[in-house]
Design a protein around this nucleic acid. Structure first.
Lengths: 161, 161
DNA sequence: TGAAGGCTGAGCAATCTGTACAGTGATAGG
DNA sequence: CCTATCACTGTACAGATTGCTCAGCCTTCA
């Protein structure tokens, strides 16, 4: 487990220019094509790279409002609630968490008004006792991974030298 | 703005098999290659598809712990705090939100113990008054977009018929 | 010393991409 | 009703890329 400096550079490159091919990547990185191919295979095999799914902007398909909802669940209803939330398309992700509240989910909606509908759909279920919602105004740091990759690569490569 | 049924199927297909090429996609969808190419260009041009960045699993590169932190910011320090958090690699995303707390950020760490270090780094800054953290235990619904795409495509295609 | 693993550079057949062009059907405007 | 526009189809071609394999070289490790 872990990645070295070359893996890090490869991931950065892929993040910056995803449509790049193996051949072009090998040129940019200054290594042989076979090396890039082998690294990619390994990264995917080991689960570091989950995939290359299209990064779809919810706002661009009509869902410009994002919100986070903290849910409090009735004891023992966790499984049912999870199953319920999984059926709601506007629930983009769901986590079970420690602390105040039992679950945290990311929601999107067509408008602030529509968010009410979404929340009703989410909360309108047996096991959910209470929900508290926070609407996202700005997103100063969009979901990113490159800085972390860079650090992980440094941690692996630095101390070893 | 909005996507039709064919866009929806294309996005679903890309999500399911990202390494697929334009030609193979056109075969699967039963349309001409040029059509797929045009749709892809349009989807990327209109911002629906932001990119095809590699989906990296933080756990696989040594950061298996995820947490969400709600931050309370001192009046007028928002800009500085944003800039500060942007420099922390373990901050995967940052939102400004309504309600209790002013910002919500997603963090990762090498372990529960390491999370303390990360939080110290995040909170160790002038403008942050208070931070409340929730550790993620499970992730029953990983970040997903397909169900939403499907619904958006239905909404666009259905009522029109 | 020998074995194993990773990288290089090269080669080959098959495939895919970028691009262009003509034909067709549907739609919107005149 | 006629016509321009637009999207999709089917086809074509040159150039680039991919998947795969092989031999050689170097470093690490037992």
């Amino acid at each position: 487990m872990g990645i070295d400096e070359l893996d890090g550079r490869l991931l950065e490159l892929l993040a910056a220019e995803p449509r790049i091919g193996v051949l072009e990547a090998s040129r940019r990185l200054g290594v042989a094509r076979g090396t890039v191919q082998a690294r990619l295979d390994r990264l995917q095999g080991s689960g570091v790279i989950r995939g290359f799914g299209p990064d779809v902007d919810p706002a661009a398909i009509g869902y410009p409002v994002t919100a986070f909802a903290t849910l409090e669940i009735r004891q023992g209803q966790g499984r049912d609630v999870r199953a319920h939330l999984a059926t709601v398309p506007e629930v983009l992700e769901l986590h079970t968490i420690t602390g105040r509240g039992d679950m945290l989910c990311r929601l999107v909606a067509r408008s602030n008004a529509d968010l009410q509908r979404v929340i009703d759909k989410v909360v309108g279920f047996e096991g959910i006792v209470r929900a508290s919602t926070a609407i996202v105004m700005e997103n100063p740091v969009p979901l990113r991974i490159v800085p972390l990759v860079r650090q992980a690569a440094r941690d692996a490569g630095g101390p070893a030298s």
